[in-house]
Simulated assay, not measured.
Amino acid sequence: MKRLKKTVCAPESTYQFQSTAAITMAENSNFLDVNFGFIGLGAMGYPMAMNICKKMSPTKALYITDVSRPAVEKFLAQAMQENWGGLVVIVETAKAVAENAETIFTIVPAASHVRDVYLNPETGVIAAGKSEGRLCVECSTIDLATTRDVGEKIMQAGVAEYVDSPVSGGVPGATEGTLSFLQGCPPASALSARLTAVSLLMASPDKIFPCGPLGSGLAAKISNNYLCGTNLLASAEAMNFGIRNGVDKHILYKVIQNSTGQNFMLDKVTPVPGVNPAAPSSRDYQGGFKAQMMVKDMTLGVEVAEATGVVATMGRAALEVYKQAAVDPRCIDRDVSVIWRFLDGPE
């Protein structure tokens, strides 16, 4: 593999959007026999791009960019050292990625970054010009208004087909290639068939969900995150007072696991240290989803709920607790399950 710094000329599109949902095996392979692009090599994006590189056609290239030069340099070096498969090309802008790739994934921290990646008139995807076959899959967790505005502008300009497709499964899912993809596109369509084919490079086959029109993937993700935040806090509080009343933490964990209070956040994230060896709490809350980020997710949930006339009573209460934990020195930059420590749970 040879390191390339210079942007090459954009290849002709190898895919034309179809009017039917009938996709043959040959057509499915065509979806993968293209150049890919990836924008945003953070905690989630890096392993997602890694899986694309390992599984894509070895005759095609993966064009990458990130605001962090060390991140792209590390990615290129690791791809060369471990011989992942596809050629890796570092470019400087989202525009350069779009000029060279037919299928582009983006995952960045916030709505402002999404706007810049797509709509910056000089360096954004929109500056790459029109393309009949380009597909942009936006995986960030942001507000619905932004993704709808960005998506409509990109599609109205004829630059690409744009789909909001937030992911769930965290860094372990991204690394293992078992993410869930919640896609803002109609099911049983040519677009959903193409999305399924490319998402399977990073997802489990049973975890790809076409949710409806533009924005519906994010609506589903924000709904799920709202439950994650409230369930985690409720689980931590329940375990805390149960243990303080004399129930052994291992017994209480098993009781709830096998009773009506059972939930994923207690089962897998498990805020109580020393109960689940695989949980961040058993390694001093290192790794995982940072406590500060839960403020963003809960805020999105509360805002979306109240914008549609739903009174977010549990979400508002949980949000205030997470805001306090986000600035607590004991919790900053640790997994959000450190909320147990914020609640002075016994360790």
Score class of each variant (00 low, 15 high):
Asn240Glu: 07
Asn225Lys: 01
Ala193Thr: 12
Val255Leu: 13
Asp248Gln: 12
Ala219Trp: 00
Leu233Asn: 04
Leu233His: 01
Phe264Glu: 11
Gln257Phe: 10
Leu266Met: 09
Arg194Gly: 05
Lys207Trp: 15
Leu233Arg: 03
Leu233Ile: 05
Leu232Arg: 08
Leu218Tyr: 00
Ile208Gly: 00
Leu227Gly: 00
Ser223Gln: 06
Ala203Asn: 01
Thr230Phe: 04
Phe264Tyr: 11
Met239Ala: 03
Ala193Leu: 10
Thr230His: 02
Leu232Gln: 10
Asn224Val: 13
Asn245Met: 12
Thr260His: 05
Ile208Asp: 01
Ala234Glu: 04
Lys207Pro: 09
Leu232Met: 15
Ala197Asn: 05
Gly242Ala: 01
Lys268Leu: 13
Leu227His: 02
Tyr226Gly: 06
Leu233Tyr: 02
Leu233Trp: 02
Ile256Ala: 06
Ala234Gly: 09
Leu195Tyr: 07
Lys207Arg: 14
Met202Glu: 01
Leu266Tyr: 00
His250Ser: 13
Ser199Asp: 09
Ala193Trp: 13
Asn263Cys: 15
Asn245Cys: 13
Leu227Thr: 04
Asp248Lys: 15
Phe241Trp: 12
Leu200Glu: 12
Glu237Trp: 00
Pro210Ile: 15
Met239Cys: 04
Leu233Thr: 01
Ala193Arg: 12
Met265Ala: 14
Gln257Asn: 11
Glu237Asp: 10
Met239Phe: 06
Lys249Pro: 10
Ala193Lys: 10
Leu195Thr: 06
Lys268His: 10
Gly229Thr: 00
Gly261Leu: 08
Gly246Val: 08
Leu201Ser: 06
Ala193Ile: 10
Cys228Ala: 07
Gly229Pro: 00
Thr260Pro: 10
